[in-house]
Amino acid sequence: MTDTQRQLALLVEGILGSYAEQGNINHLDGSNLPSRAAVDRVLGDLLSLVFPGFLGEDEVDELSSRYFVGERCARSLRALERIIGRAMGIQCAAGKPARPRPVPELHAEAHTHAIDLLAHIPTIREVIASDVRAALDGDPAACSAAEVITSYPGVTAIAVHRIAHHLYRRGVPLIPRMMTELVHGRTGIDIHPGARIGDSFFVDHGTGVVIGETTHIGEHVKLYQGVTLGAMSVEVSERSRATKRHPTLEDHVTVYAGATILGGDTVIGRGSTVGGNVWLTHSVPPGTTVMLDKPSLRMFTNAG
């Protein structure tokens, strides 16, 4: 054995030893997890169904639309079955191994989830259409639906969220978060798939927006860049996914750039406006304007 071979043998043993010591970052049960590339591909196909003719290089018209939708649905169905089936064995809670399940059972459940998502594309499109209208209404610089669909990061982020949220609500593990993190990397907008967001939602500019898992957002809400809808820091022992940790924004709320709103008990009342760089950890009544008036916050109702 040469010196290089001996060195490589020692390296191999060292890496295998780390697998035994840091087992929480291994996946050595012989099954493949869904890859980011696979999730990205199916997400692209789903978005092409949501925005036919706008995304990708497919030339879709009324004559070809039936073929396009049929081919794209069939391809998406197969891909969703694969990635959801591979994700079904993942247990969210750390340290709790997943119960082994027969492959046919996993495939059947993955098929059900995939069919369900595709069946809801018309409903998802209806909500996304309201988001596109909100972008057109909310930004004087927006010239057309084509512009906001192909160019606005906020529209892309909320479209992906609508798809991911549908899967999240039905208990599909891993895939919803992978979808939203893919679009987070591209847009700078971080929306957890668990967040509940009403119709006609618009994120203007978008970079640095963070929306936490248990956030509730009403209809006709508008956020600017750098807004955080987050949770207060808690001890690990006190954390619970079932606890509402993030704020509620009621209908027709506007939050300007750099504002931070924290806490599950925090409710921003209907028709309120939160100014730029404001830090809020308490509720405000409907029709309130909150502004940063150094050295303290100033609040007043829109009526005066």
Rank of each mutant, 00 (worst) to 15 (best):
residue 23 G to Y: 00
residue 24 N to E: 05
residue 24 N to F: 02
residue 25 I to T: 04
residue 26 N to G: 00
residue 26 N to E: 02
residue 30 G to T: 00
residue 30 G to A: 05
residue 31 S to H: 07
residue 31 S to R: 08
residue 35 S to L: 15
residue 36 R to N: 15
residue 37 A to C: 10
residue 37 A to Y: 10
residue 39 V to W: 06
residue 40 D to F: 08
residue 41 R to H: 12
residue 42 V to L: 03
residue 43 L to R: 03
residue 43 L to M: 13
residue 44 G to P: 03
residue 47 L to N: 05
residue 47 L to Y: 08
residue 47 L to V: 08
residue 48 S to E: 14
residue 48 S to G: 11
residue 48 S to M: 14
residue 49 L to V: 07
residue 50 V to L: 11
residue 51 F to E: 02
residue 51 F to D: 02
residue 53 G to H: 04
residue 53 G to S: 06
residue 55 L to G: 04
residue 55 L to M: 07
residue 57 E to S: 12
residue 57 E to I: 13
residue 58 D to P: 01
residue 58 D to W: 07
residue 58 D to R: 11
residue 59 E to K: 13
residue 59 E to A: 14
residue 60 V to W: 07
residue 61 D to H: 07
residue 65 S to F: 13
residue 66 R to A: 15
residue 66 R to T: 14
residue 66 R to Y: 12
residue 66 R to M: 11
residue 67 Y to I: 15
residue 69 V to P: 03
residue 69 V to N: 08
residue 70 G to P: 05
residue 72 R to F: 03
residue 72 R to N: 09
residue 74 A to K: 09
residue 74 A to R: 07
residue 76 S to Q: 06
residue 78 R to D: 12
residue 78 R to K: 15
residue 79 A to D: 15
residue 79 A to F: 02
residue 79 A to T: 09
residue 80 L to G: 11
residue 80 L to N: 12
residue 81 E to P: 07
residue 82 R to D: 13
residue 82 R to W: 06
residue 82 R to M: 15
residue 84 I to F: 05
residue 85 G to L: 05
residue 86 R to G: 11
residue 86 R to D: 11
residue 87 A to N: 07
residue 87 A to I: 06
residue 88 M to A: 08
residue 89 G to M: 00
residue 91 Q to L: 00
residue 93 A to N: 03
residue 95 G to M: 02
residue 96 K to R: 12
residue 96 K to W: 00
residue 97 P to K: 03
residue 103 V to D: 01
residue 103 V to C: 01
residue 104 P to A: 04
residue 105 E to K: 09
residue 105 E to W: 09
residue 105 E to H: 12
residue 107 H to I: 15
residue 107 H to Q: 15
residue 108 A to F: 14
residue 109 E to C: 10
residue 110 A to N: 08
residue 111 H to A: 11
residue 111 H to D: 01
residue 112 T to Q: 06
residue 114 A to W: 01
residue 114 A to R: 01
residue 114 A to M: 02
residue 116 D to E: 09
residue 119 A to R: 13
residue 121 I to C: 09
residue 123 T to F: 12
residue 124 I to K: 04
residue 126 E to D: 14
residue 127 V to L: 15
residue 128 I to G: 08
residue 128 I to S: 11
residue 129 A to K: 12
residue 132 V to K: 08
residue 132 V to I: 14
residue 133 R to L: 13
residue 133 R to S: 13
residue 135 A to I: 13
residue 136 L to I: 15
residue 138 G to Y: 09
residue 139 D to L: 11
residue 140 P to V: 10
residue 140 P to C: 06
residue 141 A to Y: 04
residue 141 A to Q: 06
residue 143 C to D: 06
residue 144 S to I: 07
residue 144 S to R: 03
residue 145 A to H: 10
residue 145 A to C: 10
residue 147 E to Y: 08
residue 148 V to K: 07
residue 150 T to E: 02
residue 150 T to G: 01
residue 151 S to V: 09
residue 151 S to C: 11
residue 152 Y to A: 04
residue 152 Y to K: 06
residue 152 Y to C: 05
residue 152 Y to H: 08
residue 153 P to L: 04
residue 153 P to N: 04
residue 154 G to L: 09
residue 155 V to Y: 03
residue 155 V to N: 01
residue 156 T to W: 11
residue 156 T to S: 11
residue 156 T to Q: 14
residue 158 I to H: 02
residue 159 A to H: 04
residue 159 A to V: 05
residue 159 A to K: 03
residue 160 V to I: 06
residue 161 H to C: 04
residue 161 H to M: 08
residue 161 H to N: 05
residue 161 H to F: 03
residue 161 H to W: 04
residue 162 R to Q: 05
residue 162 R to W: 02
residue 163 I to M: 10
residue 163 I to S: 03
residue 163 I to C: 07
